[in-house]
C-alpha cells in the first residue's frame, strides 16, 4: 500500500518520536529539579572547603584580577592573602585547583577541587593519602616560579605522573603571577 510512503504516515512517525522525546524530557526536567539544588550545593561546599584549606578564614571574591595565562578562574581575597582558583590542563582533562598565596607572594598551600586523572597515577595528587599530602605539601613556602625536578625545579613529581605534576606546577605559577599582579 502506498500509505507507507505518504506524508501523513511519516508525520505520524515523527510525532510518535516527538511524543517519546517529550515524555523523556519531562521526566528529566523533574529529576533535574530535584537534583540540581543538591548538586549546586555540593559544588559550592567543595569550593568553600578548598578556600578554607588554603586560606584559613576564607576570603571575599574579587571582580577584577590580572591573568596573562588564562588559567585563573576566580580569586578570593582576605587580610592574610589570596585564594586563587586555577584550571591547568592535566593528562586527561582540566584540573581545578585552589592555590593559597600570602601577601608576600609565598604559597600557603594547594587543594585539588576536581580532576579526571588516572587512578593510582595522576589522581594521587588529589588523594587524601600520605603520598598525596606529601606531594601537595611541597608547594607550601614556594614563591616565584615552581617546576618539577625534571625541568630544573624543586618539586618531586609523582612517579609516573609527570604530566599531572607539571600541570599542577603551571597552575601554581599562574596563581603566583596573578597575586604578583594584584600587589
Amino acid at each position: 500500500m502506498s500509505q507507507k510512503n505518504s506524508a501523513l504516515y511519516i508525520l505520524r512517525l515523527a510525532l510518535t518520536l516527538l511524543a517519546i522525546t517529550a515524555a523523556v524530557a519531562a521526566a528529566l526536567a523533574g529529576v533535574n529539579a530535584i537534583t540540581a539544588p543538591r548538586i549546586a550545593q555540593a559544588n559550592a561546599l567543595k569550593t568553600q572547603q578548598a578556600i578554607e584549606a588554603v586560606l584559613p578564614g576564607g576570603g571575599e571574591p574579587l571582580d577584577v584580577f590580572p591573568d596573562e595565562t588564562g588559567l585563573v578562574s576566580r580569586v578570593y581575597a582576605s587580610d592574610t592573602g589570596y585564594a586563587v582558583e586555577v584550571t591547568p590542563t592535566g593528562f586527561d582533562n582540566t584540573i581545578t585547583m585552589m592555590v593559597g598565596v600570602d601577601k608576600s607572594g609565598q604559597v600557603l598551600g594547594i587543594d585539588i577541587i576536581s580532576h579526571t586523572e588516572t587512578a593510582g597515577l595522576g589522581a594521587v595528587s588529589a588523594a587524601k593519602t600520605t603520598a598525596g599530602e606529601v606531594f601537595r605539601g611541597q608547594f607550601a613556602g614556594c614563591s616565584g616560579e615552581v617546576s618539577v625536578a625534571k625541568d630544573g625545579g624543586s618539586i618531586d613529581a609523582i612517579t609516573g605522573a609527570t604530566i599531572t605534576s607539571r600541570a599542577i606546577c603551571s597552575g601554581v605559577n599562574a596563581a603566583l603571577a596573578c597575586v604578583a599582579g594584584l600587589n
Partner: peptide, 10 residues
C-alpha cells in the same frame, strides 16, 4: 543542559 546527552545523541 541536562538534556545534553539526549539532544546530542539525537
Amino acid at each position: 543542559t541536562y538534556m545534553q546527552t539526549v539532544a546530542f545523541i539525537l
